[in-house]
Design a binder for these strands. Structure first.
Length: 497
RNA sequence: GGCGGCAUGGCCAAGUGGUAAGGCAGAGGAUUGCAAAUCCUUUACCCCCAGUUCGAAUCUGGGUGCCGCCUCCA
């Protein structure tokens, strides 16, 4: 079984072979930092984080580069609207990006270049394109000449000759008039009065959107990289244009493999700012959805398919995560397995002989992930591994002494270690959440002392065989979201539901 | 209009030629004063039509429906 990916460039599933054996260079298109990240970003970066973790686990030396677009009309508009500066808006949102991504357990990229700090590379690239006749300057703007580039449209499956007809109605604006072809795009934009600008051979201005990625890829990873990542909505024009620029300049393929993730939909439509149907990551987390629930929700679907975001589906993921989590926390509680909460590490060479069931589980996990990152099938393996552990954890929680003993058996320990290792490859880590749940319950109307008092009342009622009264107390607390759990020895515990 | 993708049980979602993973929800039983947890059992002819094949959810053709891109977008 070999690792295979669906390459957007060839539209087929093909075996993955890095340019240099054992090393993988990855470039992931980042965000334009004019606002907070929403669930679409979360989905994309969770998927690519798993790709990265998996490659590392399989023993590749991965260099992962992700950019920030920190100059753009939207950032300037935002800065103008709030009376601050481009830098202030960018800095704030870069910080927010890190906070949100860290919360989702997404590993930080090895290098995170910013457009405003790569201007030398950008200017050099544009000059090379100009020298080769692939770019032209028009009134302070510089455009890429798509007609000069053989194969333009190969990524998105577009044919320039056919596309021209459909574009005939769009040449009215002043900018369109300066272009030689409607698909020509800006490499450098002349500065408008009052806007931040940078010097260049073509006058003061700033880089176009697409050129920064071409320059950063080259600067950080070289002319040809192994994998280029992004959302499906970037295929055209962004990635098409990146390819055109880079390949016109270097004469080399920009990336061997192009991977694109599907969109997050709401009510069947793409989540986007313009439709106003987006939820930010921090809003979702603030609403009480755990980061790992979101992660599981994303990973239970295949990365290329659209993912419909509904509260029902998210609730299902939350319940599913509780099960996995209790299995993972059982491990953490036993202190017998090594923690994989830090960065992912390669799987041990010459893995120890495992019992047949576990060894099969591990193979199924690898086969699923090798098959174009089939995380949905991979999570199924996790659930199957977790089932006995989860059952054990629940019995321990409810006071079953025999269950506590079983936790220590070698069979359970091996199963637990494997579960934790594979969960770590997917970036899933145990969350201890009981204390927070109690605080929330107490805030909802019943103080902890009141709850304890009611439990005492109920115990007395039970002793007097007054079950009607006992059940009434249970119902009363349940209505407030507090569940009573009777344990052996006449003890009663409670949980926030 | 052009390009690309998707249609699997109540919901989500794997499965690319040999009689359908997994999660959520549901049902029956054991157990429990009740509840919870646990254990056992259980719920799909894979959008429609035609074709290829010994055999198709899986391949081919046609149809229907939905989505994305073609303008900034993960």
């Amino acid at each position: 079984m070999t690792l295979r990916f669906t390459n957007t460039l060839t539209r087929r599933v093909e075996p993955f072979e890095p340019l240099v054996a054992g090393r993988v260079g990855i470039y992931c298109c980042g965000v334009t930092v004019y606002d907070l990240c929403h669930l679409g970003h979360a989905r994309s970066y969770i998927n690519w984080d798993v790709l990265r973790r998996y490659l590392v686990w399989r023993g590749y030396a991965v260099t992962f580069v992700q950019n920030f677009t920190d100059i753009d009309d939207k950032i300037l508009n935002r800065a103008a609207a709030e009376g601050s500066s481009m830098e202030a808006v960018s800095e704030r949102n870069i910080e927010a990006f890190h906070t949100d991504m860290d919360a989702l357990n997404i590993l930080r990229a090895d290098r995170m270049p910013r457009a405003t700090r790569c201007l030398d590379g950008i200017r050099t690239l544009i000059q090379e394109l100009e020298a080769k006749g692939a770019a032209y300057c028009a009134d302070g703007d510089v455009y890429f000449a798509v007609m000069k580039q053989q194969g333009y449209g190969k990524l998105s499956g577009r044919d320039l000759a056919e596309q021209q007809q459909g574009a005939s109605g769009r040449t009215a604006t002043a900018e369109e008039a300066r272009k030689r072809h409607p698909f020509d795009f800006a490499l450098w934009k002349r500065a408008k009065p009052g806007e931040p600008s940078f010097d260049s051979p073509w006058g003061a201005g700033r880089p176009g959107w697409h050129i920064e990625c071409s320059a950063m890829v080259r600067q950080e990873l070289g002319d040809t990289i192994d994998i280029h990542l992004g959302g499906a909505d970037l295929i055209f024009p962004h990635h098409e244009n990146e390819i055109a620029q880079s390949e016109a300049a270097t004469g080399q393929p920009l990336a061997r493999t192009w991977l694109h993730n599907g969109m997050v939909n709401v009510d069947g439509e793409k989540m986007s700012k313009s439709l106003g149907n987006f939820t930010t990551i921090r809003d979702l987390l603030a609403s009480g959805v755990s980061p790992m629930t979101l992660r599981l929700f994303v990973l239970q679907a295949h990365y290329r398919k659209p993912l419909d975001f509904t509260t029902e589906a998210l609730d299902a993921a939350a319940t599913g995560w509780q099960g996995l989590n209790s299995a993972l926390e059982l491990i953490a509680g036993s202190g017998s397995a090594p923690s994989t909460r830090a960065a992912i590490t390669p799987q041990p060479q010459g893995a120890p002989a495992l019992p047949a069931e576990l060894s099969t589980a591990r193979e199924r996990f690898i086969a699923a992930m090798d098959d174009d990152l089939n995380t949905a099938a991979a999570t199924a393996v996790l659930f199957e591994l977790a089932r006995p552990l989860r059952a054990l954890a629940n019995r321990i929680e409810r006071g079953d002494g025999a269950a506590a003993e079983q936790r220590q058996t070698p069979a359970m320990a091996r199963r637990a270690a494997l579960l934790q290792e594979l969960a770590g490859v997917l970036g899933l880590k145990g969350e201890a959440n009981a204390p927070a749940a109690r605080t929330a319950a107490a805030a909802e109307g019943f103080s902890e002392t009141e709850i304890n008092a009611l439990i005492d009342q109920r115990r007395a009622a039970k002793a007097a065989k007054d079950f009607a009264n006992a059940d009434q107390i249970r119902a009363r607390l349940l209505a407030a979201g507090i569940e009573l759990i009777d344990k052996p020895g006449g003890l009663t515990d409670w949980l926030r539901r």
